[in-house]
């Protein structure tokens, strides 16, 4: 069952164009000029119940605009959106009871209050009864391990603890879909890992559908089974993570430490990425050359140490972005 249905979604923004210098500024007062920016252009996709989908793209690709339209914050120019069967344009308030949102760069918690008081506050906002709020707080406390700081004012919490509380708070109303916009932004690797495990656990235990935007490949790789890539306002890839890796991981990186210098140039299937005499880094295109032939080129007798790895997912995604340009 699709919980998010998006069809031909489009949104344009009008932005003022100002001429150079004083003359341009004065002219723009009397004769303002505008340019139209197509932020989202005929985007279509469906998300099934319980899925964890990564919605990614470079800066300015249109992902935040899309997420804002899905949550009823922005009005689309064209296209249809159905979130749990509701149109966010017409049923924003009704929809608000059914979804949760976390915008990593925006705080929703009241910082002078404790997480407990915040949960009580948001529970009341969602018209929950006192006993329901208390029950939910107990669940969230266990799920996100909040026991230690649930009665500490939010302003005294670390960033990682605060994000944990932000996510927990967005679950107070038992949302069927959770929209996470850069939830791990600004966090250190350990805390990121921690947050990811909480999101994973939440998805497993509560069956909440997660729609995630992030620039962090770790978030995408570790959380999502499906990835939608958007660039210049259009969807350029919508596939499972497995397929993405299978189709795009046809390159291997060989890092080799040599006994003596060898002369190697770019050739079909081989690209020299780094050549520092005794240290070599080459990229092998497996469609053109198999890995054993590539190793033979290095002369195995002269190798002291070797490491063969896949192309990092970050580079794959970056390649997809570039290809689309």
């Amino acid at each position: 069952m699709s919980v998010i249905e998006v069809k031909n979604l489009s949104k344009t923004f009008k932005s003022k164009v100002k001429g150079k210098g004083l003359k341009g500024s004065i002219k723009s007062i009397f004769k303002p000029k505008y340019k139209t920016i197509k932020a989202v252009n005929k985007v279509s996709f469906n998300v099934e119940k319980g899925e964890m989908v990564a919605f990614i793209g470079p800066n300015g690709a249109g992902k935040s605009t899309t997420i804002k339209m899905l949550t009823g914050i922005l009005y689309p120019d064209n296209g249809d959106i159905k979130i749990l069967g509701l149109d966010p344009r017409k049923n924003r308030k009704k929809l608000a009871y059914e979804i949760g949102t976390v915008f990593g760069q925006k705080e929703q918690l009241w910082t002078h209050l404790t997480p407990y008081d915040n949960f009580k506050f948001f529970g009341a906002i969602y018209d929950m009864k006192d006993y329901e709020i208390e029950k939910k707080i107990e669940e969230l406390k266990a799920l996100f391990e909040l026991d230690e700081f649930i009665n500490t004012p939010v302003k005294s919490l670390s960033l990682g603890q605060r994000i944990r509380c932000e996510i927990a708070c967005s679950l107070i109303n038992d949302p069927k879909i959770l929209f996470l916009d850069e939830p791990t932004i600004g966090l250190d690797p350990v805390v990121k890992e921690n947050i990811r495990s909480f999101i994973k656990r939440m998805n497993k235990e509560c069956h909440t559908t997660v729609f995630l935007t992030s620039h962090d490949v770790g978030d995408i790789e570790k959380l999502c089974k499906r990835v939608i890539i958007i660039n210049n306002g259009t969807v350029v890839l919508d596939d499972t993570m497995e397929n993405l890796k299978y189709h795009y991981l046809n390159k291997k990186i060989i890092d080799a430490k040599m006994k003596e210098k060898i002369n190697l140039d770019d050739e079909k299937g081989i690209k020299i990425l780094k050549d520092k005499g005794y240290n070599l880094k080459i990229e092998v295109d497996l469609k053109e050359k198999n890995i054993s032939d590539a190793i033979k080129l290095l002369d195995p007798d002269k190798i002291i140490d070797i490491n063969i790895s896949n192309t990092p997912l970050e580079e794959i995604i970056s390649d997809i972005y570039k290809k689309d340009k």
């Binding site: 804002k68 914050i73 924003r92 608000a96 949102t101 915008f103």
Partner: peptide, 9 residues
């Protein structure tokens, strides 16, 4: 910021 208040009931 006003946008983020809009998706609250």
């Amino acid at each position: 910021n006003i946008a983020y208040q809009m998706n609250k009931p």
